[in-house]
């Protein structure tokens, strides 16, 4: 068997297993970790298709950042076990309909011809072929307008998310580091001059106390000195 094919089968089976795990496991943290595994395996399948830029970006963005935040939230939730199969039969018809629709769309999109004829395998690219460069050229020349529109939509979403969640309450205390670093000694410290006679008196008595008392520790010494 071809090594590439073997790798493909191994990783796609793990991918399907992980995807099933996401929806069947009752522990939300486990489900999130299964999703990480699924992303990772699909990245490897993309890598087999010589789409290394997309594969690494999938790991970098989804596994390295998005899923970390996901886990962050899921771990904070105090749900250890979700109730099993709640509303399973109720949602089954809808779910099945959506799955069928998605599968039909994918099949139509890829123009899969049954019995394996039809699509021929593209020739492997030479080693110095950089699909990062190709993608960059496509995005920033031919599809610049669409790309910018997508970027603006994302920016709007970011601003909307911030605007929706940011609430300034009057009693919240904020730090102002630019003012903190400018603080002067005079702002925080007040030097008071006091009469130091009492102190001198006390130390004088301590000095006269016997050596055995002096060895008993500072606080004991001053107490005894005050009493005598």
């Amino acid at each position: 068997m071809d090594l590439k094919l073997l790798v493909f089968w191994v990783f796609s089976l793990v991918l399907i297993g992980a995807a099933v795990g996401v929806i069947t496991t009752r522990n939300p943290v486990q489900a999130a970790l299964f999703l990480v595994l699924a992303f990772f395996n699909s990245a490897i399948i993309w890598m087999l298709m010589e789409a290394e830029f997309l594969a690494i970006t999938l790991v970098l963005v989804y596994v390295g950042a998005v899923m970390v935040l996901f886990l962050f939230v899921v771990m904070m939730l105090d749900i250890n076990l979700l109730p099993m199969r709640e509303g399973y039969s109720k949602h089954l018809p809808w779910g099945a309909a959506i799955v069928v629709a998605v599968v039909v769309q994918i099949v139509l999109l890829m123009r899969v011809k049954w019995a394996g004829s039809g699509i021929e395998q593209p020739a492997p690219k030479p080693a110095d072929y950089s699909n990062t460069e190709e993608l960059g050229l496509a995005i920033y020349t031919d599809y610049l307008f669409q790309f910018e529109v997508a970027a603006v939509i994302l920016l709007v979403a970011i601003i909307a998310a911030i605007a929706l969640t940011m609430r300034r309450r009057p009693d919240t205390k904020y730090q102002r580091p630019h003012e903190q670093v400018k603080v002067q000694k005079a702002d925080r410290l007040r030097v008071v001059s006091m009469n130091s006679e009492d102190n001198q008196d006390l130390t004088g008595k301590v000095a006269k106390a016997p050596a055995a008392d002096a060895a008993a520790g500072n606080s004991g010494v001053s107490n005894q000195g005050a009493k005598s």
């Binding site: 690494i56 790991v59 950042a65 771990m75």
Partner: peptide, 20 residues
């Protein structure tokens, strides 16, 4: 690897999973 820098970035970002 052509996309070596991306690869390194992706892998260093995976290290956080061990901690979490």
């Amino acid at each position: 690897v052509n996309a070596g820098l991306l690869y390194v970035l992706a892998l260093t970002s995976l290290g956080v999973y061990g901690v979490i």
